Amino acid sequence: MEDFLRPLYQERASQANTLGVLFIEKKQKSIPTTDTFDAVLLIVVKEAEQAVFIKHYTYEHKKAALHVVTEAQINEWILLGTNRKIFDWFYNGKIQFDRNEYLYNLKKELMEFPFYGRKVKMGLEFARLIRRYMDGKAFFENKHHLDAYNHVVHSLHHLARLAVIENGFHPEVTVWHQVKQIEPEIFKLYSELVTSEESIEKRLELLFLASEFLIHSRTKVGVMHLQEVLAQKDIWAFQEILSHNELKEYSVDLSMLLEYLIEKGYIEVVNQETKGQGVFHRNYKVAEKLS
Rank of each mutant, 00 (worst) to 15 (best):
F4C: 01
E11I: 02
A13Y: 00
Q15M: 09
A16H: 15
A16V: 12
G20T: 13
V21Q: 02
Q28C: 11
K29F: 13
K29Y: 07
S30M: 08
P32D: 11
T33L: 09
T36I: 15
V40A: 10
I43G: 00
V45N: 04
K46M: 10
E49H: 05
V52E: 09
K55Y: 06
K55L: 14
K55H: 10
Y59S: 07
E60P: 00
K62S: 01
A64T: 14
T70G: 05
G81E: 02
G81V: 00
T82V: 14
F97M: 01
R99Q: 12
Y102V: 14
Y104V: 10
Y104L: 13
N105K: 14
M111A: 11
F113L: 13
P114Q: 03
R128D: 04
D135F: 09
K137H: 12
A138N: 12
H144R: 08
H144E: 10
H145C: 12
H145F: 11
D147K: 13
V152W: 01
H154K: 09
H157D: 15
H158E: 05
H158W: 03
A160E: 04
A160Y: 05
V164H: 06
N167L: 04
G168K: 11
H170M: 03
V173D: 09
T174Y: 07
V179G: 09
I182A: 10
I186E: 03
I186A: 04
K188A: 15
S191K: 13
V194T: 12
S196Q: 09
S196K: 06
E197T: 11
E201W: 05
E201S: 10
K202P: 06
A210S: 15
E212N: 13
I215G: 03
H216F: 07
R218C: 03
M224C: 07
L226G: 03
Q227E: 10
Q227F: 04
Q227S: 11
E228Q: 07
L230P: 11
A237V: 08
F238N: 05
E240R: 11
E240C: 13
I241F: 00
L242A: 12
S243N: 07
H244E: 01
D253C: 01
L254S: 05
S255M: 01
Y260V: 04
Y260A: 02
K264M: 08
K264W: 01
E268F: 05
V270H: 00
E273D: 12
E273R: 15
K275F: 11
Q277G: 13
A287E: 11
